[in-house]
Computed example of a mutant assay.
Amino acid sequence: MSFLNDLLGGAQGGQAGGSSLVSIAGQLIEKAGGIQGLVSMLQQHGLGEAAQSWVGTGANQPVSGDQLGQALQNGGLGSLLQEAAGKLGVDQNQLLGQLSQVLPHAVDHLTPDGQVPAQGQGGFDLGSLASLAGKLFGGSAA
């Protein structure tokens, strides 16, 4: 994942590079209504099979930045994407390309037993994603 490290190394959006991207993934999950809300949104916009694979215990199905962007835009999260791209100083398509790599890992990380948390238990801990940044980007997430 060195291309992510390279790109994020220069994008110090107030946080350490890789953790900024993981933080954005967390914000998307939060704005979508938790894991259940995000998976539901992705299902409604054509990425249901991929989203289910991220939750399940098997391999994560890849999605392209374009596919993810279309689903998130249609799901009403376009303004969050624009804002995040602006903060990181990258093009929104670049951001979506990176998120298409990180978001599956974030969902996978937050559903370790292969189950979406029940509604009402959607209060996931953004701090739990900090350890994911360390795994994905090989650095310590401060």
Rank of each mutant, 00 (worst) to 15 (best):
Q52I: 05
G123T: 08
L72G: 01
G69I: 14
V90D: 07
Q82T: 14
G78P: 08
N93D: 11
A118H: 00
N60A: 15
L47N: 04
Q82F: 08
G58H: 09
Q67A: 11
L103D: 04
G127I: 04
A51D: 06
L126R: 14
Q92L: 09
T57C: 03
A71E: 07
A106P: 07
N93P: 00
G78E: 07
H45M: 10
Q101D: 12
A59E: 14
Q119E: 10
Q101V: 07
V63L: 05
P112W: 00
G120C: 06
G69E: 08
G75D: 02
W54A: 00
T111L: 02
A85N: 08
G58D: 10
A85V: 09
Q52Y: 07
Q98R: 03
V102I: 13
N93Q: 15
F124I: 08
Q73I: 15
V39L: 07
P62Y: 07
P62E: 12
Q98S: 15
P62T: 15
G120S: 08
G65K: 11
G78V: 09
H109A: 10
G89N: 10
H109R: 05
A71I: 09
G48W: 10
E49N: 14
G76C: 12
S79K: 13
Q119L: 13
F124T: 08
A59N: 14
A59L: 11
Q70F: 06
N74E: 15
Q73A: 13
G56N: 13
L80F: 02
A118F: 11
E83L: 10
A85M: 11
L80C: 01
L81Y: 01
G78Y: 01
L42C: 03
Q94L: 14
L42A: 01
Q43A: 13
L129I: 01
G58S: 13
G120Y: 02
Q52P: 03
G69D: 11
D125P: 00
L129F: 07
V102N: 03
A50L: 08
G78Q: 12
K87M: 14
G69Y: 11
A71Q: 01
L99Y: 05
Q61F: 07
V107S: 06
G89W: 14
V107L: 01
D91N: 15
G122L: 05
Q44T: 13
G89A: 05
P112Q: 01
G114Y: 09
Q94C: 02
L95S: 06
L47S: 04
L68H: 06
A106E: 00
G89I: 12
L80K: 07
A59Q: 15
E49C: 03
T111H: 02
N74S: 15
T57P: 00
F124W: 05
G127F: 11
G123Q: 09
F124A: 02
G76F: 11
G58I: 09
L72V: 09
D125N: 12
D66A: 14
E83N: 14
Q67Y: 08
P112N: 02
Q67D: 08
V55R: 00
A50R: 02
G75I: 15
D125F: 02
Q67M: 04
L77N: 05
G122V: 05
D108V: 03
D91F: 08
G69N: 03
